[in-house]
Design a protein around this nucleic acid. Structure first.
Lengths: 232, 232
DNA sequence: TCCAATTAATGTCTCTTTGACACAATCATT
DNA sequence: AATGATTGTGTCAAAGAGACATTAATTGGA
């Protein structure tokens, strides 16, 4: 990959799409990482992503989903653009731009597939600093984590880290894991009711004490944003 | 611009950087538009932007600022990434990605320069639908406006539409213009005090009634985000 | 000169949402 | 049956925004 691939007035930047796919597993925040099989940074852990295939992908959103599906066999229920990261230094091949998406998934939805391969793994966000991470992906993950933490304070997005049916207790631990501090169960229940995003299931499940009510997301609802943050 | 400029496995998407520069002028929200001198969409109004010059620009942020400076002769005090827009259809030359920035400036800071040229103008956001707008720039401006409206509810960013010294009355009008409804002066004052972002100037100005206190942004302060929105 | 109109700034009460925490309900284990 | 654990409810306080009255300062006109 040299610089002569460009006949325009301007040399084109390298353009890639990467995704930060989070889940909460065993009360800690994990990110999906892929062991790189190619240069640069071969053998390092990196974010799932790659080049746009303009013959296949209608938009960069589709690129992100396609690349995630290659690695996990499923598409996450929640995905949004985080931001683009660019510089002349972040890729040894030259000026590069990566458009980063930020996605959430229930660990159960991908575990069966991930267990069969070695080059795709859930990595604890707190263990990243002890690993060799490609490009500026460690920094990118930190930015994605900050965005997720902010979103958890005014929206119900963390619910996308849970399976179809879930309890309030599960949602509470997911949120607490994401924001790194405990919240009031009462406040969570109030928001669940106010959002009208969820329906109760006619079934309860064991949880060490009194049986817990199961909830699910109503079909075709939008994510509600609250006008107030939970307190930091 | 044909497809043979690429020798990689993947054809590269077209990659551009555009900016939505807002200001508030005469109690209405304006966006800086440029009459296009080149194909495609020659003669249409479009957002200021263009290709990255990888020999000059360290990052895409610098591209956005460089292009804005070419059109206004100054760099805005506030700029942030909005998001990338992509598709095979948005540019007749093929699959294209534009990374859009969203910036604010005081009208006074650019008016002298703009008055000397014909191809750069402040256009009222409500008059866009009656003009010929290039690409999907009209849609992009709508998205930028929504983001600005949201930000105005939980931060003090609208202050960057005002000159160095400003009154509470001026800030109130700017915010009301942005969000399209009136707010309580008292709420604004409470936020000005709580944010600790501003200092009073030892000078007052006429405003048709009692003299108004002048404020300015303290040097090197960060924008404060409130934990609660003003009500919609 | 005085008064009305106008805009700025403050005082205060209400309303909404969250935090804190006590208390009740329901399950398993002993 | 008693204990512990977890789920769920009731209630009061705190914080911040809305509503709006009141006071302050200035201009312009009768």
């Amino acid at each position: 990959m040299t610089e002569e691939y460009d006949i325009n007035q301007f040399k084109n930047p390298l353009f890639t799409v990467d995704s930060v796919l989070f889940t909460v597993k065993e009360a800690s925040l994990k990110v999906l990482m892929v062991k790189r099989a190619n240069q640069p940074f071969i053998g390092y852990w990196g974010l799932p992503g790659g080049f746009v295939d303009i013959d296949i992908d209608e938009t960069t959103d589709k690129t992100a989903l396609r690349k995630l599906k290659e690695k996990t066999s499923v598409e996450p229920l929640y995905i949004e653009q985080l931001q683009a990261f660019s510089s002349k230094d972040r890729d040894p091949r030259g000026f590069s731009v990566t458009l980063v998406y930020f996605a959430l998934i229930a660990e159960q939805d991908v575990s069966s597939h991930i267990d069969t391969v070695e080059d795709v793994q859930w990595i604890d966000v707190n263990q990243l600093k002890s690993l060799s991470i490609a490009f500026d992906h460690q920094y990118i993950i930190e930015q994605a984590q900050l965005r997720l933490q902010q979103k958890a304070l005014y929206s119900m997005v963390p619910v996308y880290c849970l399976p179809e049916y879930f309890t309030i207790g599960q949602l509470k631990t997911v949120i607490e894991t994401i924001i790194g501090k405990s919240i009031q169960r009462k406040s969570l229940i109030r928001r669940i009711e106010a959002s009208e995003m969820f329906a109760t299931i006619d079934e309860k499940v064991k949880s060490g004490g009194r049986l817990a009510q199961l909830y699910k997301i109503k079909p075709d609802v939008d994510i509600v944003n609250f006008e107030r943050n939970l307190s930091v």
